[in-house]
Amino acid sequence: MIFPKIKVLRSHGRQAIPDLDAVALTSEFRGRPELSEAADSAEQSAVEQAAALCPTGALCAAPLSIDLGRCLFCGECARKAPRNIRFTNDYRLGSPTREGLVIRPGDTHVAFDMTRVRPELARLFSRSLHLREVSAGGDASIEMELNATGNVNFDFGRFGVGFTASPRHADGVVVTGPVSANMVEALEICYDAVATPKLLIACGSEACSGGLFAESRAVDRSFFERHTPDLWLPGAPTHPMIFIDGIRTLLGQKKREQP
């Protein structure tokens, strides 16, 4: 039965994005926020209202800042205080340090401090990187986005980056979700099973900070006290381009402006 297949193929056409480094997302996409200091008391009170509404406490009114590691990119703060908070569609949100995720007035990009990246990472993994993903309370959207990094459109595999089933075959672990207490042991065992030298990536705002569940008794963040990620990727969920950009920058294949 070849004719139906030819039809599918013809409609399918060419799907791969030709240049992953040149992707621009739709203007609706909420990526890196831009902040400006409140100029008067009306603006200041708008910012304070926004901070009170923020579902995760990512927004701090004084001094004004947004912690992307907690932000859900719901965009409500920008509606409350449109003159001081604006979301751009910039998806280059990853950072090698947790502090790098904090955005302050005037910041025009998320800092990517290459001096804080272990120098051997580029040498070891830039030609082939295989990751084991562990979902520890992830809500399935973020897992689907990570799957999507390897699909026909993004095809991250073209750079030798992919996901593998066994931690024994993996060069590192990607953690999604706030780390539920019921999963913490399995996560630890899995991370332990990956041979050194290895990478650790916290993917999604929930993994970075616990997100909505930061205070939940059912969540156990001790894993991140024992191990420090090499890369922090915000997002709820993390768009495939945030992941791709983060890994490529980490491995020195792509440059981010320096302050």
């Binding site: 509404l53 579902p55 859900l72 409500e76 539920s180 019921n182 997100g211 205070e215």
Partner: peptide
Amino acid sequence: GYQHRGVERAFEETSNRLRQACLAEA
């Protein structure tokens, strides 16, 4: 049970309705 995050309790512990809406989405 590995995915248990305490969603229902998180609803009850906050009066911020935006937070509750975000919890529902999660």
